[in-house]
Amino acid sequence: MHTITVIVPAHNEEEGLPATLESLARQTVRPDRILVVDDASTDRTGEVAASHGVTVLRPPRNLGSKAKAQNYALPQCTTDLVLAVDADTVLAPDYIETVLPVFDDPEVSIAAGTVRTRHTRTLWERGRSTEYLFGFHWHRPIQARANSPMVCSGCCSVFRRDDLMAFGGFPERTIVEDMDYTWAQQIASRRAVYVSDAVALAADPEDLTYLRKQVWRWMAGFCQNVRLHLGRLIVHKPLLAVWVLLALLEILTAPLWWATPFVLAATTDQPPALAFAWWAGAELLLTTPPLLYAARRRKLPLATVLLNVPCVYATKAVNLVYAWKALIVELLLVPLHLARGLTVYEKGRADTPAARPVVPGVG
């Protein structure tokens, strides 16, 4: 029988934290302990957490990143498993129950479920929802069948504590600890597992300001991990190295694909509208089938899923800009000692206004 401790790092999360803690309280398999790390919040995060009857840990100063906050709580974990949950993520009631059985295999070191967006109110949230549906119902299942998932999502990953402690805790050397640990464990011949039936709902950036911060962190972190791990991946986990190289190739060739309708219009006799129609048709042919499957798999309204498809091109454009920036900075300038790379962790959502009144226990 597995035992599990939940770590929730939280900095100025009084607004989103209640829903997270309530989702943990509703788990069909209850965690043995819940630790909220109130990382020098200037709002009422600590008080809100305490009102839910969980253990609140308060570092003497702001630690500056999610991994550091999680490591602050790690010595308090005595269970065989550790679940790291972001303070704005809501777990389905059976999340823990669904993930736990994979740890019956002693080779499994880390596991995580499917991530979906909690809200689809803005253009950016709608675009991200489409990205998630496509990625978790196309890329991730293929990687899982090949026993080489690219990442176990940091907002809802379960870790085997002994492996985590032997590794030295949550990695702080890159800006994205989830990918770093997922790759490192697979290089060490440990297993990372995608559990498709376990669902977590994440609060994603509502506006362009915070989307840019989140995407820059993700892309910079990906390239940091490429710089750190790629050589050993090729030797010890070649199939995972293939996914990584394909991701790099996609970044490099994406501008060519986006330019295709304009090139066709300029170099052929086709009218611009027809050139764009051919391009759009190819896009839909590539993207729609996984989305149709995702809508059926998750029992989502098909019309809503399809109406959100145009929004994904706005988020794709942001992804492309920061992916290229990451390539240049992290894979070119940093090795040449011309830049430091991204070292400052910035959240993808605004802090809760400190003056906003909050009723403890109400999400």
Rank of each mutant, 00 (worst) to 15 (best):
F167G: 00
D105Y: 02
P271V: 15
I142N: 06
Q185D: 07
Y210W: 12
L239S: 00
V193M: 07
F170M: 11
T122N: 06
A323D: 06
W124E: 11
I34W: 04
G348W: 03
V90E: 06
R297G: 03
G169T: 11
V90T: 06
P353F: 02
K68C: 00
L240D: 00
L320D: 02
T343Q: 12
R33F: 00
L264Q: 04
A303M: 12
P261R: 07
T45N: 06
S196Q: 15
E131G: 02
A73D: 05
R227D: 14
V82N: 00
D88K: 05
V36D: 01
L286K: 13
W324A: 03
P141H: 06
M219D: 14
M150N: 08
L246M: 13
L228K: 04
V102R: 15
E107S: 15
I96H: 04
V263Y: 07
L201N: 05
V36E: 01
G127L: 06
L211V: 07
E206R: 14
W183P: 00
R191S: 12
R297V: 04
V215T: 14
L91R: 04
L342R: 15
D351V: 09
E97V: 08
F134A: 03
H229D: 14
M150D: 08
A323S: 15
A354Q: 08
A282P: 00
E177Y: 13
T28M: 00
H137W: 07
T45M: 05
G169P: 01
H11D: 08
L233W: 05
Q186E: 11
S41R: 10
N308L: 05
W138K: 09
D80R: 06
P301D: 02
R145I: 09
C311G: 01
L248S: 01
K299W: 09
D39F: 02
T98R: 15
M1I: 10
G361M: 09
L248Y: 05
L230F: 11
K237A: 15
N71K: 09
W124H: 12
Q185R: 15
D105S: 03
R140T: 09
T209Q: 12
L300W: 08
L300F: 05
Y194K: 02
A92R: 01
V359P: 01
V329H: 03
L83C: 10
T343S: 13
V318C: 11
A87M: 01
H137F: 12
F276R: 10
R126P: 01
V334L: 02
T45Y: 04
A265K: 02
A280D: 11
A323M: 09
P261D: 11
L240R: 00
E172K: 08
S41E: 03
S65R: 05
D207M: 06
A146W: 11
V85T: 05
P357V: 04
P301T: 08
G341K: 09
V318K: 03
Y313I: 06
P335S: 11
A241K: 04
V312K: 15
R30K: 13
Q76P: 02
A111L: 10
I7L: 13
A303E: 13
G168F: 13
A200I: 07
A254P: 01
P357F: 08
